[in-house]
Design a protein around this nucleic acid. Structure first.
Length: 177
DNA sequence: ACCCCGATCGTA
DNA sequence: ACGATCGGGGTT
């Protein structure tokens, strides 16, 4: 049984599409809950009309403009939260939305960004947390990990993103087949 | 102060 | 197909 290793900032400080694909098969850890990520979406910069940062910096999206490896959690439709991980270099607004994970017991409860956050009890309290292992002082319960020795990348497909009204032309949703 | 809209989900 | 439900952000 290999141990889970928290991913470093360098994993997230890369082109967002690369990070998105590479996040498939990784482990989302929140407290004592763990799930394997099987569905993500990329939101990339001010030229992506579906990106929250498309119209510039606001109080809500400010963490997207910061360094990679930071959590971006926001409320949607007044009743759900969505969890993202910020990507790319400091100053460039982009993130990966985690849309689904699979768990040993509770897959049906984690197959959507809102349901996933509800089951993991992720709220705006989890916004702007350092999810990486770069610094000893940053260690806390919300992070992405890989299993030591896991080398084969899972098969995946790319599709348009879900629930958006602009930017449907981009195939920036990635799902494990 | 007001209005519109949204990276969703459960129910019909 | 539709309603629930409310915060963010732009406009008056």
């Amino acid at each position: 049984m290999h141990k889970l290793q928290k991913l470093p900032r360098s994993f997230f400080n890369r082109p967002t599409l690369d990070v998105s694909r590479d996040m498939l098969g990784k482990y989302l850890v929140c407290g004592d809950k763990v799930g394997v990520i099987n569905e993500v979406e990329a939101y990339i910069g001010q030229d992506d009309p579906a990106c929250h940062a498309a119209k510039g910096l606001t109080k809500r999206n400010e963490v997207m403009f910061g360094p990679a490896g930071i959590s971006y959690v926001y409320m949607i439709y007044g009743m759900y939260h969505c969890l993202n991980v910020v990507t790319e270099e400091d100053g460039f607004p982009a993130a990966v939305l985690i849309r689904g994970v699979v768990m040993d017991d509770a897959c049906a409860k984690t197959d959507g960004p809102g349901k996933l956050c509800r089951h993991f009890e992720i709220t705006k309290e989890h916004n702007n947390l350092d999810m990486t292992a770069d610094f000893a002082g940053s260690s806390q319960g919300l992070y992405i990990a890989e299993k030591a020795g896991d080398s084969v990348a899972p098969e995946y497909k790319a599709t348009p993103r879900i629930g958006i009204s602009k930017g449907q032309d981009k195939l920036w949703r990635f799902v494990i087949c």
